[in-house]
Simulated assay, not measured.
Amino acid sequence: MKRIAIVVVVLLGVVGASLAVGAGNQIDTLRKAAIDREPEAPAIAQVENNDIRRKRAYPMQPPTIPHKIDGYQVDLKVNRCMACHSRHRTEASQAPMVSVTHFMDRDGNFLAEISARRYFCQQCHVPQTNARPLLANDFHDIDDLLRASQSPSQQH
């Protein structure tokens, strides 16, 4: 009796798998393509290279990078970003210095060099792009909300 039950389960599994393969073109996927075909990759958004800093949308948001960083070496031996953004180079480069928080260890002690936990810049900072949002978004930053809540006579 157990053998018959096992055979029936195996046969049902085989039939179900073959039906699923046949119906593979009918499954709606997140990538909007059949499971058995590789869709064409979407175009990569172009990096803005206008050297104009964008306004931050919320407090403590890491600033976005207003220039191209193609080919920048950031590894255990070299951090190309620091060639312009280190404390010693900002006067010559006119680039903003990295925040003092980048020189703090996890215990709040200030270090002479950038902290290891803040060394890899692209963990938080990304290049500015012309990419359209992937999802609809109705986020409003605090400035927009404050402006909207003020009456016309209070605005200046």
Rank of each mutant, 00 (worst) to 15 (best):
M1R: 06
K2I: 07
R3M: 08
I4D: 06
A5Q: 10
A5Y: 11
V7H: 05
V7C: 06
V7I: 12
V8Q: 03
V9L: 10
V10E: 01
G13Q: 07
V15T: 14
V21I: 14
V21E: 09
G22T: 10
G22Y: 04
A23D: 06
N25I: 08
N25L: 08
N25W: 11
N25E: 13
Q26S: 14
Q26Y: 11
I27C: 09
I27K: 08
R31H: 14
R31T: 10
A33S: 14
A33E: 13
I35A: 05
D36A: 15
R37W: 08
R37D: 13
P39N: 03
E40Y: 07
A45D: 00
Q46H: 04
V47L: 09
D51L: 11
D51M: 07
I52C: 02
R53M: 05
K55S: 02
K55W: 01
K55A: 04
R56K: 08
A57Y: 01
Y58S: 14
P59W: 00
M60H: 13
M60T: 11
P62W: 02
P62D: 05
P62E: 05
P62S: 05
P63V: 00
P66H: 12
I69D: 09
G71Q: 04
Q73S: 10
D75W: 13
L76Y: 09
K77C: 07
K77L: 14
N79H: 12
C81M: 10
A83Y: 12
A83W: 10
C84P: 01
S86P: 07
H88I: 04
E91Q: 15
E91Y: 10
A92P: 03
S93K: 05
S93I: 02
A95G: 06
P96L: 01
P96C: 05
M97Q: 14
S99V: 08
V100Q: 15
H102L: 05
F103P: 00
F103N: 10
R106S: 15
G108P: 14
F110K: 14
A112M: 13
E113V: 02
E113N: 12
I114T: 13
I114M: 15
S115L: 12
R117F: 12
R117I: 15
R118F: 15
R118W: 15
Y119K: 02
Q122G: 02
H125S: 01
V126M: 11
N130P: 01
A131Q: 11
R132H: 07
P133C: 02
P133K: 04
P133R: 04
L134Q: 03
L135H: 09
L135D: 01
A136N: 10
N137T: 02
N137M: 02
H140Y: 02
D143K: 11
D143S: 12
D144I: 02
D144W: 00
L145H: 04
L145M: 09
L145G: 04
S151E: 00
S151L: 00
Q155V: 15
H156E: 10
H156S: 13
